[in-house]
């Protein structure tokens, strides 16, 4: 069992109605984190997080990064105490 912290920004924060949360995971995998977050915050969050066709993390208009700024994928493993940040991916304007 590990604990992973999450930081939600912009539209993620609006859906979650909180900027931060923590999740206890049986398996230290991004896939389990995505499932736990979706289960806690509902279908809108699931739609932001998971591509319904590929079952991979939704890459469109989003950005999920670890503390070093690296984009995470479903198959990545997580460390106890790690923070994952959920951002919208847009530029310019």
């Amino acid at each position: 069992m590990i604990t992973v912290h999450t930081e939600f920004h912009s539209h993620f924060r609006e859906i979650a109605a909180t900027a931060r949360d923590s999740f206890e995971l049986e398996e230290p995998l991004v896939a389990e984190l995505a499932e736990r977050i979706s289960a806690r915050y509902g279908e809108k969050m699931r739609a932001m997080l998971i591509d319904p066709e590929t079952r991979e993390l939704n890459e469109r208009g989003t950005m999920f990064v670890d503390t070093s700024g690296r984009r995470i994928s479903m198959e990545d493993t997580l460390e106890d105490g790690e923070t994952i940040t959920f951002l919208v991916g847009i530029a310019g304007g």
Binding site: H9, H11, R60, M63, T85, L87, V88, I90, G92, G93
Partner: peptide
């Protein structure tokens, strides 16, 4: 059918403010 697009409708390109602040 794209929730991320809905988020963009709400904020436009200002959605980039927090992402850019973070990275």
């Amino acid at each position: 059918g794209n929730e991320a697009v809905y988020g963009f409708k709400r904020r436009g390109t200002l959605g980039a403010v927090e992402m850019y602040q973070h990275i």
